[in-house]
Simulated assay, not measured.
Amino acid sequence: MKLRLQLFEFEDLPWFPGMIRAGMMDYLRFMISTLGTYQPIVPLLRAALLQTGQTQLLELCAGAGGGTAGILHRLHTTGLPAAQVCLTDLYPQPSAWRLLQQTTSGLTFAEAPVDATAVPTNMPGLRTVFSAFHHFPPAAAEALLADAVRQKTGIGVFEGAGKHWLELLLACTVLPVVQLLITPFIRPFSLSRLVFTYLIPLIPVFTIWDGCVSILRMYPPPQLLALAHCADPEGTFHWQAGVVRHWWGPQVTYLIGTPAETGA
């Protein structure tokens, strides 16, 4: 599917209720962590860290931090025991992040909002964006990449899906049923999450819409590379984009850029 539509997602809207947004993010965190969605890109992250000489990942647009613990653990067990992650977001979720921090060595977070297109210079690390780059229209996406180029930090952008009509069909049919089945098992427990899933099903309804729009807004690899080259007209970074596949089928779309002088 090459079509890209710049539709809106409810979770992006500033007036959208934080309680509903948190419920949606908790569901995504649970699914991404349980399925190990981003495990296939750990070798790419490990290589980027080694190329840039960094040990910290600065996760932008972290949401509820889905998959972060598994990625960090895998980095620790594949030759990078000093690896760390700092979670940031324009809408921080410190309560969810504290839960992760209790069981994850090397994880920190910033409680203040962080704009991914203008990251403070005192926040070091190889930047990562998981499941969120599609939220940015082309001009903002280019600005996000350009900020990483300007600060010479390196960046990795990852979307836990391929851009296919089958993914869209799953988002409308199978995944809503899964959400209804797993919600009681999501931790930490939240009464509001149960209320707005079963009694007043706002969380599932908005999740279906946002999930479908996410796929339609995704940038395929050629478009990711085009954005990267616009953000880095001088060619100071080495860029690679593509798709990696889980052994059981699902795909992860990625873009990675590292400063060229590092020898990448």
Rank of each mutant, 00 (worst) to 15 (best):
V114T: 13
H135Q: 09
F109K: 07
F136C: 11
G125A: 05
A146F: 01
T128R: 03
P113N: 13
P113G: 13
A146P: 00
T108I: 00
G106S: 08
G125I: 01
A132F: 04
A132C: 08
P137T: 12
V129G: 07
A146E: 04
A139S: 08
A118F: 02
T108K: 05
P137E: 15
D115F: 08
L107A: 11
P137L: 14
L126Y: 06
F136Q: 13
F109G: 09
S131Q: 11
A146G: 03
P120I: 09
V114N: 09
T121Q: 15
F136M: 13
A139Y: 00
E111P: 01
E142L: 02
L144A: 12
P120N: 08
V114S: 10
A116W: 02
L107N: 04
P138V: 15
F109I: 06
E111G: 03
P124E: 11
F130C: 07
V119A: 14
F136D: 11
P124L: 09
F133M: 11
S131M: 10
D115M: 11
N122T: 10
A116Q: 00
L144I: 01
V119Q: 06
T117H: 05
A116P: 04
L144M: 12
A118M: 01
T121K: 10
H134V: 11
S131I: 09
E142F: 01
R127G: 02
A143T: 11
L126W: 01
H134I: 08
L144N: 01
H134E: 13
L107C: 09
R127T: 03
V129T: 08
A143R: 13
